[in-house]
Structure formats: C-alpha cells, structure tokens
Amino acid sequence: MQAPSTLDSPEAPPAVKSRSFKRAFADVREAWDHRELWGHLGWQDIKQRYRRSVIGPLWITISMGTTALALGLLYSVLFKTEVATFLPYVTVGFIVWNFIVGCVTEGTDVFIANEGLIKHLPAPISVHVMRMVWRQVLFLLHNLVVYGIVLAIFFTSLNHEYRIGESSPLQPGLSWTILLAIPGFVLLAVNAVWVSLLFGVISTRFRDIPPVVNSFINLVFFMTPIVWDAGVLSRVTGGGDGDWRMLIAELNPVYHFVEVVRAPLLGHTVDWHHWAVVGGFTVGGWALAMVILRNYRARVSYWV
C-alpha cells in the first residue's frame, strides 16, 4: 500500500497570516514584477477594441480631436477669450480629464470585469488594476497626437507671454518647463493606481458604488476648471474680495491633478501648492489603499 501523501496531520500552522501588510505589499510588488503581463494585456485591449475597424485606434485620436475642437471653439466664444490660447487649454485639459475619468470609472469596475481571470488564474489582484491604468495611459498617448497638432497650429500664440482671460495671471509661455509634465503625469498615474485599487475593492463588495461614481463624475467635470479657466472665478466677483470663490476650484482635488500635467504643457507656471496637494494625496491615498488591500485583498475572489 502506497501513500506518499496522506493525512499525516500537518504540524503547527504556518506563521503567514492572510491579513498582513506584508501580503498587501507583496501583492503590489508581484504585480509590478508581472509588468510584461499587464503591458501585453493593455496593448491587447486596445488592439481588441479596434480589431475589425479600418482605421483602428486612430478613432481614439479622431474622437478626441473633434471634441476638443468643438468645446474649445464653443467656450472661447462663451467666455469671450481668444481661440488661439483657449483651444489648446481646453484640449489639454480634456485629454488629462479623459485619463482621470477613464481610470476612475473603469477602476470601479476593474475586478468585476475580470471575474473570470480572478477565479481561474492565480495572480496578484493589482495586476488587473495596472493593466487598466496602462490601457488608459495608451489612450492618453493616442490623444497626445491631438495635442501635438494643436501645438503646431497655435505655437506662435503660446511661445511668448500670454494670458488666457483678462483676469488670469500672465503666463510665461512654452519653454523647457514643458518637461515638468512628465513627473506630473507619473504622479497622476501613480495616484490612478491607488484610486482604482480602492474603488475597485469597495465596488466589488458594494455594487451601488459604480453607478454612484458614474453619475457624480459628470458633476466633477463641470466643477473642474477644464472648459473654463480658474481665473474666471475671481473675475465674476470683480477681484480681491472674491477669493473665497477660488475655493470652488481649490477644494476640488481633481483640479490640482489636472494642473500639474496641463500647466507645463501649455507653458503656464505650476504653483507649488498644486505639487503639495498632489504629493499629499499620493501618500495619503496609498496608505488608505494599503489598509484596504491588507484587509480585503483575499476577499476579492470571493466577492466577484
């Protein structure tokens, strides 16, 4: 009678606890090590979406281009600002906003949509989040083509000092500071990961969250200075004593995230407080996400 593996009762339980920060960090680290996997899957997602269309991913660029053009023209007329500076402003703002909204709305859905993979292949759950954020980055890169075109057309209006609206501060114009957009965007992407980890886990448990987020996100769009300029807030009140109105923008975290990427791309100065707020959210948000990941990481496969 052979029995190489029987019920010879195993000794003491191992010291590895399922709910520990070690496991939570390991999840994120392993997911990062799997970058070849989510990198491949992210590309696959884009190719997949346009598999049988003739011009393929160019549709991403075209739809962004038409939207930016229409919004830029409309709002520059509404706010009586110059198209040459306002159209690039709206375009860049909208490209960044698209990235944010993509990460947030798809982030709430990230585990629910990957139910099959989660239940059938063992992998760190952060892999699905990174795949989604990577896909959004690729979308953004497609949209940057629009930025390039707009920049080429309006370069002469942006390469010297200018202001967007009458009451807006004077901006120095395009220079090497454009490179600041890179660290700005990296920070934005890093934040996108924790946001979708957090919302993803919560939404998997409470299925009311995705519709709530989807309906509020539109409101956030109108509250954020994207199709309007933050300087407008002080203009409508006629100057100095209207500072409290600036809080409409300042209290909106999305504004700061948009600003650290948008301002360098347009040759605006980035006020240091935007960096501070974004940095604070990065640290605080990741801490919160790690706590959630520690407590509920193992539950996700049960909930989906």
Binding site: L37, H40, Q44, Q48, L117, K119, A123
Partner: peptide
C-alpha cells in the same frame, strides 16, 4: 475562461504563459 475568443491561438498561448 482566461482565453479571449477574439484573438488568435498564438496570442492566447502568450497570455496564458504570461499569467
């Protein structure tokens, strides 16, 4: 599951292997 019906067998081999 874990196999995408729209992509080629070759791609599926790739993805499964990466997973």
């Amino acid at each position: 599951v874990g196999m995408d019906p729209e992509i080629s067998g070759y791609e599926n081999i790739m993805i499964r292997g990466l997973f």
